[in-house]
């Protein structure tokens, strides 16, 4: 697979490390959320046959974490964004 890195252009998937479902970005606040919330966040994930947003790390590259949108049926990659930008857009700013 080839991943269109938002900064570096097309890069071979072998340069990346795969983590999984990008819903991991929605980490609950450890000071307010309880065990149930953390458990659901960590373990209850969808495994769609189709469009999936997932986290990839460009370990053999610029160390960017990316959110890659991929069709799990065809391996077609529909887009890739810097995870930092996605997280900030979700409100993770100072």
């Amino acid at each position: 697979m080839i991943i269109p890195h938002p900064l570096l252009g097309p890069r071979d998937a072998q340069e990346f490390v795969y983590l999984g479902d990008a819903s991991l970005m929605n980490r609950p606040d450890g000071m307010t959320a309880g065990i149930e919330a953390f458990h659901d966040w960590l373990y209850q994930r969808d495994n769609p046959a189709g469009i999936h947003r997932e986290l990839w790390y460009h370990e053999q590259g610029d160390r960017s974490w990316l959110v890659v949108t991929r069709n799990t049926l065809t391996h077609e990659i529909l887009g890739a964004e810097l995870a930092r930008d996605v997280a900030r857009a979700m409100g993770r700013t100072k």
Binding site: E59, A87, R92, K94
Partner: peptide
């Protein structure tokens, strides 16, 4: 050594970019 570094990058880019 490698996985901790990856984890730190994950935490600072993905979880707490602020």
């Amino acid at each position: 050594a490698v996985t901790v570094f990856r984890h730190l990058e994950y935490c600072r880019q993905v979880l707490w970019p602020e």
